[in-house]
Amino acid sequence: MTSNQTTSRASAVSAERPGKNAKARFRPFRLVSEVLMAGVVLLFLFPIVFTFFSAFKSNGEIFAQPPSLFGAEFRWQNFVEVFEYTPFLRFIFNGLVVSIIGTVIVVAVSALAAYSFGILRWRGRDKFMLLYLATMMIPQEVLVIPMFLLMQKLGWINTWQALILPWAFGAFGAFLLRQFFVNIPYELVEASRMDGCSQWRTFSRIILPLAKPSLAVLAVWTFITFWNSFLWPLIVVNDVNELGNVSLGLQTFFGEHGSSWNLVMAASVIAILPTLLLVVALQKHLVKGIATVGLAGR
């Protein structure tokens, strides 16, 4: 990019925001700052960019001297080999089943609870909410051992339900939705009840449609959490090829083909692509969700 173009861009900015004179005065400084920032962002993203390029190289070229992003050839073959060695399509399918069913349960259960915490009025509500919040401090690591015992007792080791149910009842979802629900005017609920609607009808016909954006936030976030889970599948899945997700598959693949770095990078691309696309497609929902939770501390 020539400095000429950049300057015209910078002046376009100040033209857009005529009120911000203070910023326009320091234009050269801003220009340097923008260029520097772009460099920092690129450097930050380098590991991901590097992964994508390495996935199409031969193994030798990854360690070429001097290093280069581009290999001599563009090896799609790497991906074919990864799929031949290890059932990554199966891992993706498994991940989808667990994440989708898990997300549906979490969103449904959380929405019901949030209606109780955010809309309905009852004695002890806020104290009970605090109790709920306190459970968020219990780390997953404390729960895995008793959860494993529970799964053993139920005969659920190496099953779908063991991957889904134990983590579908956390307080996070109820809390997140409650933060949105409390802003819905109670008069709306009263009016609906006056019209003879049952609580269920009020919930499903009035509140849920209003809450769609917040439900989307929770859904995206829950999906990604299930999709990326590692410790629990590592514990409860015996047969990786049957029930493993991409994290577990990648770890196994790495253990077996650790020296074929080009294939490992191709497998990594397969592992990171789904969530990468999801974030790019649904960035608004995600960003909003985190901002809401983060600012809820206020």
Binding site: S247, Q251, S268, V279, L286
Partner: peptide, 16 residues
């Protein structure tokens, strides 16, 4: 862009 590593599976991050 800064958020992308957050949603990258941690196993993939470690391998990379």
């Amino acid at each position: 862009l800064f958020f992308l590593p957050v949603v990258t599976p941690s196993v993939a991050t470690a391998v990379i």
